[in-house]
């Protein structure tokens, strides 16, 4: 794929990924066929900041974990009322990283399938 298109994609979507993952993503996209770009652009990434706000407001009910797709952990958090409050506190500091990790997994799934 053209490097200008890849750079444009990274500029608009860099906030969804860990900064140390960006060089690897760029490399993968450069080796990708032009026709697969539409699959990449159709992926709906989760915004880490939005998830952090949800975690602050409804973290004790596990809504943040449900939103990023960790249903099992979400149910666990819901049933334990945010791990008696401790898990909710820890998740305030973990959830942005977890969201970026999930976005990376989502991108990798599409790259593997295409």
């Amino acid at each position: 794929m053209e490097s200008s298109k890849v750079d444009m994609f990274l500029m608009t979507n860099s906030k969804f990924f860990e900064s140390h993952q960006l060089p690897a993503i760029r490399e993968q996209l450069l080796n990708l066929d032009e026709s697969k770009m539409i699959n990449i652009q159709m992926i709906e990434f989760k915004d880490p900041t939005t998830i952090l706000i949800v975690s602050i407001l409804a973290g004790a009910l596990g809504i943040d974990r449900f939103m990023i797709g960790d249903t099992g952990l979400g149910i666990g958090k819901l049933l334990t009322l945010g791990g008696c409050g401790i898990w909710s506190i820890v998740d305030l500091f973990l959830i942005m990283g977890a969201t970026r990790q999930k976005n990376m997994e989502r991108l990798q799934n599409v790259l593997i399938m295409s």
Partner: peptide, 15 residues
């Protein structure tokens, strides 16, 4: 270390 790594590492202490 990248910006995000510093943020996560520092978060451990703040938490």
């Amino acid at each position: 270390s990248t910006e995000h790594e510093r943020e996560y590492a520092s978060n451990g202490y703040i938490m």
